[in-house]
Amino acid sequence: MFCFEVATLVLAPPSVVFDTSLSVELHTSSMRDSREQAVAGVTSGRLSLGDQVTWRARHFGFTWHMTSTISAYVRPSYFVDEQVSGPFRYWRHAHTFESTRDGESGVEATLMKDIVEFAAPAGPLGVLAEALVLRRYMTKLILLRNAHIKQTIETTVR
């Protein structure tokens, strides 16, 4: 199993960043390169506790489906999405939102943290795939998503 953390400073209050992070439309627009779409469950709007969504996306030349559920939800500070079914042996993505101030401008900001834990299927081959490809690839996807969230919010809020 692999775990990584990404921290992103967004110049907006935690409630705005929290709500935006749960938007199905924002998620799909942030993952447009992989043509990710919500195809079952909650397919539009803002996700909340207990909601399930099935995502369809293209990665590594293959179409994948993953159903996840919002398993924890404390607005505006924390939520977790976990795979119910899909390509991973295990997938858990915790999102935290801490109120802070931008050091340069003093503007109200949010320190958004993503803690992602996952395990590939296929035993030893999956462990090899994690080490050679998936760790870097999954980190890149979260960084892209966070950059999109940051840009969307900061462009809208300002």
Rank of each mutant, 00 (worst) to 15 (best):
T139S: 02
Y137W: 14
A7D: 13
L47K: 06
V24G: 06
T139V: 03
D81Q: 08
D102T: 04
K113C: 02
A72I: 00
A38V: 06
A122I: 00
V39E: 12
L141N: 03
L9I: 10
G50N: 09
F97R: 05
V42L: 12
W55I: 04
T100W: 09
T139I: 02
P124F: 15
A7P: 03
Q52K: 14
E130C: 01
T67K: 10
V74T: 14
A7C: 07
F60G: 00
L49G: 11
H27S: 07
Y90G: 09
A131S: 07
T69W: 05
E25H: 12
L128T: 04
R158S: 05
G61C: 10
M31G: 01
L134P: 07
Y78Q: 06
P121E: 06
S29Y: 12
A7M: 04
Q83P: 00
M66I: 15
K150F: 06
E5I: 09
W55S: 01
S21G: 15
R58A: 14
A131F: 07
M31Q: 11
S105T: 08
V42S: 10
V80F: 03
S15M: 07
P13C: 09
F2H: 02
P121C: 06
L47G: 01
R46F: 09
T20A: 15
S44T: 15
I115A: 05
S85V: 10
F118W: 03
L22R: 04
I70N: 01
A12G: 03
H93D: 05
R35S: 01
E117C: 04
H27N: 08
D114C: 12
R92K: 11
Y90I: 13
R101F: 14
L47V: 10
W64H: 10
S99I: 13
A119W: 01
F88V: 12
G61Q: 04
V42Y: 12
L128G: 01
A120K: 02
S71C: 12
R92S: 04
Q151A: 12
L26A: 10
K150L: 06
T54S: 13
V107C: 15
S68Y: 14
T63Q: 15
W91T: 08
I70H: 04
D51V: 02
E108F: 13
T139Q: 01
T100H: 14
C3I: 14
V157H: 10
T139Y: 01
E25P: 00
G41M: 07
V24T: 06
T139M: 02
W91I: 15
V24K: 05
G106R: 06
E36G: 04
I153C: 02
S15A: 08
S29I: 12
T69P: 00
E108Y: 08
R32D: 06
E36K: 03
S77T: 11
R158I: 05
A120N: 03
F88G: 02
E108R: 07
F4M: 03
V10P: 00
V80R: 01
T96W: 13
Q52D: 09
S99W: 06
D19R: 04
R89W: 10
R101K: 15
H27P: 00
L132W: 08
V157C: 12
T28G: 09
L11A: 00
F88K: 08
T63I: 15
T155P: 02
M1G: 07
V107R: 14
V74N: 10
I70R: 07
F60C: 00
T8A: 09
A131R: 12
G123Y: 08
